[in-house]
Design a protein around this nucleic acid. Structure first.
Lengths: 243, 243, 243, 243
DNA sequence: GATGAATGAGTCTTCATTCAT
DNA sequence: GATGAATGAAGACTCATTCAT
């Protein structure tokens, strides 16, 4: 995920995330974006993240990596701090609680796949529905297996979180599901998917097969993800039986 | 899982599980099976578990349910004790550590699906390979979604455990994977699966799709699992595209 | 320590030890001695300890050994039970509490040296004071290093016990100290010890040197204790300097 | 023990003690000594310990006092914390475990006597061997009975610790014993001790007599320790018998 | 006589969190 | 911005003790 993208995501996240710790939190993304327009940055054309923001990001990245690997409960703030190369106490300069970090990680993770998939589909232009879905599969897998740890953290830990923590993310999750349903629906309408296939079970089936890859997959060869995506598309569309 | 079955599983588990807390652990299922031959039990034909064993089992069951729901780290011994209706300290009469409980839950869970699937396949008799695989799918889903919480706990939490804890279960996991590979291999040899389908990716794909159901599925209608199994078999074999 | 002796000690201990657990405690040594006069035992002339008493004794012996080795706090009832080859719960058939076991161990230990020393001195007959003290030294060392673990347990752990537990044993301890003081006093009066030597510091010095041997000594050669005793007597009487 | 001395000891201890809790432990005495060169401290000439170090030291001091009084097992971290006037959890900011506290207490205690004795002997200058040994005796007794609780804690509890804990301290203990052996050896070579006296038993005898004083001695009069030392020297060299 | 099963109080230890500096 | 120091609540685990059988 590029810094630019990240900043965007953070800013959106910020909107729906909890109570800023201090009345005027200087690290709210609103301000950071404002800072991004500051002279010296405009010059380079690159979004320079301030030192402060770098810390904030490295906390999130460390958290994502650890959540993904060990789960939420098993991850301590000290582990996160160590990986982010700061002291545990400093985390509270950026976040109100461990829970808030989780919230942000989850949100960024979901936003990550969602936007990647949408972009892939949009960039596809005028192609067959099968191809469009194939590209969505590839984007989903890439977000999960290649990009950042945010998406994989989300997929891995979401199921085990208490209701309270899940609640906030349900709308976006539902939206993502709907997006896939639409892809399949369009394909069925266009006759590229048999009429007797029910959409929701299909989506569950497909996303399940995709998400489960975190448990087994390890990035070895160059375009492993691409190959995996192709194979998966093939299985889904053609099935396994002899014609 | 029937008590009978469970006892069997426990006894096997016992063999490979760590240091029995007391030199001669009287709660080993070996003894309980011996007890099962006592007069009054022979009459009823039902394996009566002793009070002691009931406690042990209810600890395991509670642990499985909680591990499945919240993960290993987030589950406290007090929660397990509360659900098993004993006091936390008493757990240590039956187990040496939380880790040992985990070990046993994981083992029973894996043994559970594995034996269920093997049985389903064996009982199928002389049927097509597709049918055989369909039955395996059904058995796997049933173990995961209907039977006990052991299998679902295993599937859900395994990925987040530290290496040390996973290690002990790897052999059986590998055996289970091999078992599925064989099912697919046989089907391909018999020409029921296209020759260009690679077995290992297929198995990963299929088991992923099955396992992921824990994240979404909730037992509502009567034969929900059966329907799910049929639909999944259809997707896998026929794919989604129009003939 | 011979069973006979032991029984005696136990009976005395009993008198000053705490509240019998049950109104009519069948294991009080009074009763056990009565049992010892039962026909079949009179015949053999040997004090046969009943099975019950054997358990009681082995608990005490195990406790002494463990207290000596690890201290009182670090020793668990389960360790004692294991070494006595019974189950932890059964200890409560013989003793009211861990504290009571301690009490008895301490008492037996002190009584042990005390009586051994008195006997050695009495058996010496008409000898020089130096010889008498030499024999006392030997007896003390033998009780400490050879005989049972009761005396060494006492010497080792007494200093770290809370006041409440020490209190009960103070009278006997004082009596033992007085006994040694008398030995030295007699020797001084008889001119075998210089007149300028103060008795109490001398006794502290000597007993200190003797007691400390538990920390270093290990029984290797046959009459190691005897040699140690001789050497110690020599050091005490002659000192180290050239005549 | 003076703060200065203590700091020194701590720093040496630090070197050989286990895994500092955090990569760069800021409470190492190295830093504190550096701090000691800060202006205001140079003025007073007194080593001002930082607040942090004060806590660490008071934990150690409390531990030493309690270990000495009750033994290691019987001492709880809450007791240590209470005496050090902090909360139990805070102990873990400075130490990894109760065991590490023990380790440090033991080490400081042994180092304490050892250095005190060496210093006393070195400062003695050109004196008779008897006088030198007399001074060593005095220094040993002073370390044990007057100075800190570290040495007395060491002497009292060492014998009851499990092998694992003793192991680390054996080299220094052996070195201390060797040091005394050398003192006696020199004296014997110089003809101040009879040729027939064996060194090792003599050292055991002498140190035993000295160490045992913890069990009885209580500081009452001003130069009680000095008197005790003189008396002990006299007993050792001249023995008790009439010339 | 003896024990299997259980418990409650307490132990060491961890950890999110706070806050003065 | 950042951290060193501290804390309280909770976690896993231990242990003396109890008691029905």
């Amino acid at each position: 995920m590029h810094p630019t993208r990240r900043s965007l995501l953070v800013s959106k996240a910020q909107n729906r995330l909890s109570r800023p710790k201090r009345s005027a939190n200087p690290r709210s993304s609103t301000i950071s974006k404002r800072k991004a327009t500051a002279p010296e940055k405009v010059v380079t054309g690159i979004v320079q993240t301030s030192k402060s923001e770098k810390s904030r990001d490295s906390i999130l990245e460390a958290a994502a990596k650890l959540f993904r690997r060990q789960g939420y409960s098993a991850t301590t703030l000290r582990q996160i701090a160590a990986m982010a190369e700061i002291k545990a106490g400093s985390i509270y300069y950026y976040f109100d609680s461990k829970e808030q970090i989780l919230d942000e990680v989850l949100h960024l993770g979901l936003l990550g796949v969602f936007e990647a998939v949408k972009k892939a589909v949009k960039d596809a232009g005028n192609v067959s529905h099968r191809r469009r879905i194939g590209l969505a599969i590839e984007a989903h897998l890439a977000a999960l297996l290649e990009a950042s740890d945010f998406t994989s953290a989300n997929i891995r830990i979401y199921g085990q979180l208490p209701e309270t923590l899940k609640k906030r993310h349900r709308p976006l999750r539902r939206a993502y599901a709907k997006y896939w349903d639409q892809l399949f629906l369009d394909a069925r309408r266009a006759g590229e998917i048999r009429a007797d296939i029910e959409i929701v079970p299909l989506r569950i089936f497909v996303l399940g097969a995709l998400n489960w890859t975190i448990e087994w997959f390890s990035l070895d060869s160059k375009n492993a993800v691409l190959k995996l995506a192709r194979r998966t598309e093939l299985l889904i569309f053609d099935g396994v039986k002899k014609a």
